[in-house]
Design a protein around this nucleic acid. Structure first.
Lengths: 198, 198
DNA sequence: ACCTGAACACCGTTCAAGT
DNA sequence: ACCTGAACACCGTTCAAGT
């Protein structure tokens, strides 16, 4: 099957909501504005989504799938493990910086409805990232501890650096000059962990 | 001077907003609800704060000061450096878990007005935490790299672990079973960094 | 199956007026 | 200096009705 040239109304609503998130943030995504962009009445979205939250969940699910794809591309790109890890981190950082409100929707918004399909998409992107971490461990770039725990820690640190930056909390005076520098320091330190020392 | 037994209306508004954040989250902090708790009309808050955002900024500033105090207490408590670091992290985690909406207001909300006094309070709490990190470096518990950068990295990782948990993103299947475990792993790895190896 | 128009309760904010 | 009541524009959501 070729993809349809025209989006369904439902897809158009998701795309319009994404666009509004990018241009004006969460605040700007009102059902009325979304409906107007698509050219339907202010409550037509309710024929496709039970609530505003459900529409935002659909935006998030689509983006989680795209992130998983980006991570999987790095797994199969044929680079060495460390390059794959750095590229994956860079891809996430670029997504966050260029789509701030969408990043926060996916990784921080406490109002995001935890529908099973969304949780599945979120876990999928995490696990794709985890494959890269595991490969780094096999190549000795990262310490040989439990792979899932290590992936969780790196994911958390990466998220923390990104979230502080997006929230305007990451000033130079807090040692958080750039997300890249913070993440680079993390990888540098992890690379030099020696658990056989003591 | 002894503290007054009665709060001014302004202080009452800040306290009421804090309470509403704890009980119902950001969503529940409407100026109308705040005013009702204090017993004034729905727009009386405007005699004390120019906007809802400014009221929330006042809540944040007070809490940043309290966090700085908690960190400074650990500095002067007479414990060894590692205990001070672990206690400081535990204090932040406890604050986050018991006051989720307030934690996110301080460390994540992009709408928080960056007034100079608020930025100053935020930086103060960061620097108090940094003093503990520096002491750990002097005692050889943490790697001897630039102190501010290391503090920034630890702050970011701590924030990431907390924020993912508060947002419901920290499942066991993502290696994020508990904030304490993730932070414990971070400290464990940092403790075993050996930059003289290669 | 999908859409519309009117309506409801709620909100942040403004304003004229009161003490 | 501090407060009140009415009002405005806006929002999510519901409902009766249309094709």
């Amino acid at each position: 099957m070729f993809p349809r040239m025209t989006e369904t109304t439902k897809e158009q609503l998701v795309s319009a909501a994404s666009k509004l998130l990018d241009s004006g943030g969460q605040h700007a995504v009102t059902l009325r504005a979304v409906a107007e962009q698509v050219g339907v009445s202010h409550n037509a979205p309710y024929r496709h989504f039970p609530s505003r939250s459900a529409l935002l969940a659909a935006v998030a699910e689509r983006d989680f799938d795209r992130l998983r794809q980006a991570f999987e591309d790095q797994v199969s790109a044929g680079h060495d493990a460390e390059t794959a890890l750095r590229n994956a981190a860079a891809a996430l950082i670029e997504y966050a910086v260029q789509h701030k409100a969408r990043y926060r929707l996916l990784f921080s918004d406490p109002g995001l409805l935890p529908e099973p399909s969304l949780r599945h998409a979120a876990l999928g992107s995490f696990q794709a990232f985890g494959l890269i971490v595991s490969r780094c461990q096999r190549e000795g770039i990262l310490p040989a501890i439990d792979a899932v725990s290590l992936t969780g820690l790196i994911y958390a640190a990466l998220h923390g650096a990104i979230d502080l930056e997006l929230g305007g909390r990451a000033s130079e005076s807090k040692g958080l000059g750039s997300i890249e520098a913070t993440v680079g320091l993390l990888f540098h330190l992890l690379k030099n962990v020696d658990l056989n020392a003591a």
